[in-house]
Design a protein around this nucleic acid. Structure first.
Length: 855
RNA sequence: GCCGAAGUGGUGGAAUUGGUAGACACGCUUGACUUAGGAUCAAGUGCCUUGUGCGUGGGGGUUCAAGUCCCUCCUUCGGUACCA
């Protein structure tokens, strides 16, 4: 018997697919299906996370293809980004060279996995023919005021020497290099994503094909809160301070006013007092979202000014305080110490009066005895003619009063901020803007696009574009001024990934950004697949961009991803030596329960299971595994180990089993090949079948049913296990001479198994199909269907319970009536033991399942 | 703190949505074939005090019947955080 040799077979079929352009996406009269996996950053090699993601997508693509869809399944490269610059500096090369060579390498690895991509549609975001259209879109957005420039405090990473979007700051640290993020005032480009805040929020509830947890994260990120804005007149001055509050019902309890350090009134009211200045500078230095923010003590400074509570006319001291955020609301808040914990802490520290205005039961509360703020619902007290109202009701009434008196109004606020896209880095899309002394900010002439990123940059810690004179120097498109200056900031790389999925529909279109006909044919994406870590950033930006493009008339839909599958991370434990930092597993020796560092002999800390990453040295290379077992085994293993959405703790112990399964199927085909060769496939006239072949025939149909529904719901592990059951069943068929009909059923079983496996382990399926003497390829075959009649049986197992515990099982005729079943159950010997001499209170019969006798 | 997901054998994981807990696989045990087995095939494998026994993170509840529903507590993972 010839042993199955994956290395030879896989190469052969990969060449076959490439030569025949098997997976070229074509429009026909069939229904379309667009399946897409998030594109990779070309960091050097594929890692297990990629393999898991792309295997899932590939199974879906191949399955849908067999089901008769026109499938679009493309792949590309998210090729701009800081790691390329860092690597280039380290290795003394150019980011482009590094990136393109990584792409070549990873493309090779993808091909070795047998993924069914239409490579003719490959998109590489760092190529001028791609970013040209991004620049073009930027100009359109600029013209419509959707892209604008403003001076603002931004998150600044000193190590990366660049600005970070709010979404890219994790626990006060840079998402990329983990160093602490600072606040810095810079003039920056922004996209007005907040224009769509409401729409993005609203449609979360309409995305039925998305996981609930992702929608919740997006909703929380957009963070709409409803409340009121109220104006407080400053005493003896013209200005007013406007605050936003979600609790206008507590206004009678407001005893102080707090403004953010960056608030324009801070310097005005302090009259540039040095102490205040120093205080403000200190706070601005501190990161807003710093890790220890919770422990950070509330600090403030009295500005020696007062404002008037518009409803009580009470004089409120104005403070500048470190816990007030300029970015949220109006950058000012009314302090209600009795009903807000932060205000309470602040008032406690600075000895500010507390007034209780909400009480759980409507009874008087002594605010001075409170140990913490009461922030729950209740009944209004000390609130003049609003006393006695439920606070929810009071919010409405008080807002009405504000509006009548013109001191405030009902309003709402979003946590979502405009998307800052300027990056002071080289390896990104140049922002197509020119600064002219006469004309100001002028977009580049569309005829001059793309603004090509110069190749001869000398990389440094700062933005190298600043040093390239011919790039910086520009002619003003408006007045022709030769001494205008080009923008040297590049765009956040999330901009590229916000529309690449649309470009795949017309990847080589030169007349415009998108060919609307083709985009509207293929998109929206029927199934998008990627890591849950993109739940907020990428997916929100992509939804935003699609809206912008819809409003410009390029696409006829606003939600780009109809269905979303977020696959779980792959994690692995880390080894960390106190001296040498992270270690590879091979640098560690096990001694008893302990792990010792080979180099320095010190005990190693076995860290938590975290996402595989190069820096933590807990990556597993798919390359080695593929070499050893073949791509099919790795694909099978990724799918079988765990359901797609779950975090997968890496453990390759099971991998042998997957390779074993493939060989088991192969050996099965070899075993029956000669017998079934000349036979027809069984067509379904089941009355002539003997007991095992009838059972096999039923099993075949049940398996088709189960595998189909499992793949539809992405339950690949159970789909595979039911194919395994069918294989195991065939192994149990007694050896010896077989009748024609029996051989025909076995033939059907084997062919079905191969077809069902085709999307999962395609190389193996094609090779097996050939071994079965087929002219066609499984990729072009129809997905098997099952016959309802074949699944029907006239017998079933009846489970007999006594007081809810299983005591016996019987195989009975399904057509028996209730009385007979009861009698059978009660007369059963095993049951008798339990019910002898006991009174039977009642029996419950669940049709075709079980009977429970209650004694 | 808040929001979300989860907790089932030695391990990864099943369980038709309230109806036989542990499918399928890894590992382990035994046997067969073998010069050999880390190949292959077959059998077994939740636990124990072996019985009218126990068992799905702990405790309580609803039900003829609970991994599944309700209450409560605990743990783990993810997201988020001075958001007024």
């Amino acid at each position: 018997m010839a042993k199955y040799n994956p290395n030879v077979v896989e190469k052969k079929w990969q060449e076959f697919w490439a030569k025949n352009k098997t997976f070229e996406a074509k429009e026909s009269n069939k229904k379309k299906y667009y399946v897409l996996e998030m594109l990779p950053y070309p960091s050097g090699n594929l890692h297990m996370g990629h393999i898991r993601n792309y295997t899932i997508g590939d199974v879906i693509a191949r399955y849908k293809r067999m089901c008769g869809f026109d499938v679009l399944h493309p792949m590309g490269w998210d090729a701009f980004g800081l790691p390329a610059e860092n690597a280039a500096r380290e290795k003394n090369t150019h980011p482009a060279k590094w990136t393109y060579s990584n792409i070549e390498n990873m493309k090779q690895e993808l091909k070795q996995m047998g993924f069914s991509y239409d490579w003719d549609r490959e998109v590489t975001t760092c190529k001028p023919e791609y970013y040209k259209w991004e620049q073009w879109l930027f100009i359109q957005m600029f013209k419509k005021n959707m892209a604008y420039k403003k001076l603002s405090y931004v998150n600044w990473c000193e190590d990366c020497q660049t600005v970070l979007a709010a979404e890219q700051v994790e626990k006060g640290c840079c998402w990329r290099c983990n160093s602490k993020v600072k606040q810095k005032e810079l003039s920056q480009w922004f996209f007005k994503i907040t224009d769509y805040a409401d729409d993005l929020l609203l449609h979360c509830d309409k995305l039925e094909g998305w996981p609930q947890e992702v929608l919740t994260m997006q909703k929380n990120w957009i963070g709409k809160s409803i409340g009121a804005s109220i104006k407080f007149q400053i005493q003896d001055r013209e200005e007013e301070i406007e605050v936003f509050t979600t609790r206008p019902d507590t206004i009678f309890g407001a005893t102080f006013m707090c403004i953010a350090p960056e608030h324009h009134l801070t310097s005005v009211l302090s009259k540039n007092n040095d102490n205040v200045k120093k205080f403000v500078e200190k706070i601005i230095e501190q990161s807003r979202a710093s890790r220890d923010v919770e422990q950070l003590e509330k600090e403030g400074m009295f500005l020696d000014a007062y404002c008037i509570n518009p409803i009580t006319k009470k004089k409120l001291p104005i403070y500048v305080a470190n816990f007030v955020l300029m970015e949220y609301g109006t950058g000012a808040l009314m302090g209600v110490p009795a009903h807000d914990q932060r205000d309470f802490d602040f008032a406690q520290k600075y000895n500010i009066e507390k007034i209780a205005v909400i009480s759980p039961d409507g009874k008087e509360v002594d605010a001075d005895t409170l140990e913490e703020a009461y922030s729950d619902d209740g009944i209004l007290i000390n609130s003049q003619n609003f006393n006695g109202l439920q606070n929810r009701e009071a919010i409405e009434k008080i807002c009405d009063y504000f509006e009548k008196e013109k001191i405030g109004k009902k309003t709402f606020n979003f946590k979502l901020k405009d998307w800052g896209i300027s990056r002071q880095r080289y390896w990104g899309t140049p922002i197509p803007i020119i600064y002219c002394d006469k004309c100001g900010i002028v977009p580049e002439d569309e005829k001059n696009l793309p603004v090509v990123l110069p190749e001869d940059a000398v990389l440094s810690e700062t933005n190298p574009l600043l040093d390239i004179d011919y790039f910086k120097k520009a002619k003003c498109p408006k007045c022709g001024n030769e001494n205008a200056k080009r923008e040297t900031d590049t765009m956040d790389t999330f901009v590229e990934s916000s529309w690449y999925f649309l470009r795949y529909c017309s990847p080589n279109y030169n007349e415009g950004m998108l060919n609307s006909d083709e985009v509207n044919h293929w998109a929206p994406i029927d199934q998008y697949i990627g890591g849950v870590e993109h739940a907020v950033m990428h997916l929100l930006y992509a939804r935003y961009f699609t809206r912008v493009l819809k409003d410009m008339g390029f696409v006829n839909f606003k939600e780009p991803f109809t269905n979303l599958l977020t696959q779980g991370m792959i994690t692995k434990e880390t080894f960390e030596c106190p001296n040498c930092r992270y270690l590879f597993p091979e640098e560690v020796v096990k001694k008893g329960d302990k792990y010792i560092c080979q180099k320095c002999g010190i005990e190693v800390v076995v860290g938590k299971k975290t996402k595989m990453s190069k820096s933590k040295k807990n990556v597993v290379s798919p390359k080695e595994l593929t070499k050893q077992y073949g791509a099919d085994t790795i694909r099978l293993f990724c799918l079988f180990a765990s359901p797609p959405h779950k975090t997968l703790i890496w453990n390759e112990d099971g991998i042998e089993g997957q390779s074993r399964f493939i060989n088991r199927v192969w050996n099965l085909i070899e075993k029956y090949r000669d017998d079934i060769d000349s036979e027809e496939v069984y067509k379904g006239d089941s009355d002539k079948l003997n007991s095992w072949s009838l059972e096999l025939y039923q099993k075949i149909n049940l398996t088709i049913k189960k595998v189909t529904s499992d793949i539809e719901k992405f339950s690949f592990n159970t789909a595979i296990s039911s194919i395994m059951e069918l294989v195991n069943f065939i192994y149990l068929i007694p050896d010896g001479e077989k009748e024609t009909q029996e051989t025909q059923v076995i033939k059907l079983a084997i062919e079905t198994i191969v077809l069902l496996l085709s999307p999962i382990i395609p190389h193996f399926a094609e090779e097996s199909w050939k071994l079965l003497g087929k002219e066609s390829v499984t990729t072009d075959e129809k997905w098997p269907t099952f016959f309802k009649d074949a699944i029907k049986t006239d017998e079933h197992t009846l489970v007999i319970q006594v007081n809810g515990k299983v005591r016996a099982k019987l195989t009975i005729d399904s057509n028996l009536n209730e009385e007979t079943i009861k009698e059978l159950a009660l007369n059963n010997v095993n049951v008798q033991k339990f019910i002898e001499g006991k009174e039977i209170k009642k029996t419950i019969l669940v049709q075709k399942k079980l009977i429970n006798i209650v004694i």
